[in-house]
C-alpha cells in the first residue's frame, strides 16, 4: 500500500482509481462490476486495476444494468463490497428498481438483518454535445430516497477521499462523478479520506453564502473575481455530499452572511438546491435564492446546450440581481 506521505498530482479519474486500488488491496471483498471494466473503463477510471486484480474482482459484464445493480445487491448481502459502474447516470435509470426498491430498502425492510454496502458510480452532467440522454444531473432523485447516500465530488482530492469514505461507509452510496471533470488535475494526498457529510469552505466571506457541488463548484470559483470586483465578499461552500448534507456548516455560514445562493447544474425545479434553501429559510429566516438549469432537456447544438449550462456569467448576474 502506498503509505507515502508525498501528495501526487493526479487527474480526477486517476484519483478514483487510486482510492479503489487501495480499498481493493486492503479488503479482498471489494470488487467492481460493469461494462468495459476489463479495459479499464471508458473514462480510464479503472485503468490498471484489471491487471492487478484480475477478472474475478474487476468484473466485465454484459450490457445488463438491471442485473449489474441487482447482482451487486446480492453480492453485498452475501459478503462482498461491490462497486457498481453505470457509466452515466442516464443508464442507471435502467437499474432503478434494483437501486431504489432493493438496495435502498433492504436494511430497513428486513428489520436490520442485512446491509447493502455498495457504491454505485453513476457520472452526471453535461458532457460536450452528448445531448438529452447522456447529460443529466439527477442527484436530487436519489437524495429523495431514504436509505441512499449521495456524493458528488468536485476535485481529484475529493474524488479520492470521498470514494474511500463511500467504500468504507457500509451504506448504499450513489457516487456521482462529473463527466467533464475526468481529466482535471489536482494534488491528492494518499490516506486523506474525506468523511461523508462534511462540506468544504473553499473561500471565506461575509456578504453572501454560495453553496454548490460537482462541476458547478468550478463555475462558482470562476465567478469569484468578478464578484470581488463588485465588492461582494462570498463565502463559497462545496457541499461534496448531497446526502447526508452538512447542515451545520451551511447554517453557520448563512447565519454569518445572512443570505444564501445555491448553485447547481441540475434542473432548478425540484433540484436539491430547493431542499437547502428551504431548510435555511426555515431555520434562519434569511433570504435565499437558487440557480440551476432551466427545465429543459439538454440540447445537442452548442447554443442549446449553453442554455442548460449555469456557468460563471449567469452566476454573476444572479448574485447581482439577488443583492440589488
Amino acid at each position: 500500500m502506498s503509505a507515502a506521505a508525498k501528495p501526487e498530482t493526479l487527474t480526477y479519474a486517476q484519483a478514483a482509481c487510486l482510492a479503489l486500488q487501495e480499498a481493493m488491496r486492503a479488503d479482498p471483498n471489494v470488487v467492481a462490476l460493469g461494462e468495459d471494466l476489463g479495459r479499464g473503463g471508458i473514462f480510464g477510471q479503472y485503468r490498471g486495476l484489471p491487471q492487478e486484480f484480475g477478472p474475478e474482482r474487476i468484473i466485465d459484464t454484459p450490457i445488463s444494468e438491471a442485473t449489474i445493480m441487482g447482482a451487486a445487491v446480492g453480492m453485498a448481502l452475501a459478503g462482498l463490497r461491490p462497486v457498481v459502474e453505470m457509466r452515466v447516470v442516464d443508464f442507471a435509470l435502467c437499474a432503478i428498481d434494483e437501486l431504489v426498491n432493493q438496495a435502498a430498502k433492504n436494511r430497513f425492510m428486513f428489520g436490520g438483518q442485512g446491509r447493502v454496502p455498495l457504491v454505485a458510480r453513476m457520472p452526471i452532467g453535461l458532457w460536450g454535445a452528448s445531448a438529452a440522454q447522456h447529460s443529466q444531473s439527477l442527484e436530487a432523485w436519489f437524495a429523495h430516497i431514504p436509505g441512499l447516500a449521495v456524493v458528488a465530488p468536485s476535485t481529484p482530492a475529493d474524488n479520492y477521499g470521498l470514494l474511500k469514505a463511500s467504500l468504507a461507509s457500509g451504506d448504499p452510496v450513489v457516487y456521482m462523478e462529473h463527466k467533464e471533470l475526468w481529466g482535471m488535475e489536482g494534488e491528492v494526498q494518499a490516506g486523506n479520506e474525506v468523511p461523508l457529510g462534511k462540506a468544504r469552505i473553499a473561500q471565506a466571506g461575509k456578504d453572501l453564502t454560495i453553496v454548490t457541488w460537482s462541476r458547478s463548484f468550478h463555475d462558482c470559483v470562476a465567478a469569484l473575481p468578478a464578484l470581488a470586483k463588485e465588492s461582494v465578499s462570498v463565502e463559497l461552500i462545496d457541499l461534496r455530499t448531497i446526502w447526508p448534507w452538512d447542515r451545520e456548516t451551511v447554517l453557520e455560514s448563512c447565519a454569518n452572511t445572512g443570505q444564501l445562493l445555491v448553485v447547481h447544474e441540475a434542473v432548478q425545479v425540484g433540484g436539491f438546491g430547493a431542499e437547502i434553501a428551504a431548510t435555511v429559510a426555515e431555520e434562519l429566516g434569511i433570504r435565499v435564492r437558487r440557480l440551476g438549469a432551466p427545465r429543459i432537456p439538454a440540447g445537442y447544438a452548442q447554443p442549446l446546450e449553453d442554455e442548460s449550462r449555469v456557468g460563471a456569467a449567469k452566476i454573476v448576474v444572479a448574485v447581482k440581481s439577488f443583492l440589488a
Binding site: A131, A132, Q133, P297, G299, Y300, A301, L304
Partner: peptide
C-alpha cells in the same frame, strides 16, 4: 452539425 436545418433542429445530433 447541430444546425437548425437538421432533422431534429439541432436538438439531437448523431445519437438521436
Amino acid at each position: 452539425f447541430g444546425r437548425s436545418t437538421g432533422y431534429n433542429r439541432g436538438k439531437g445530433g448523431s445519437m438521436h
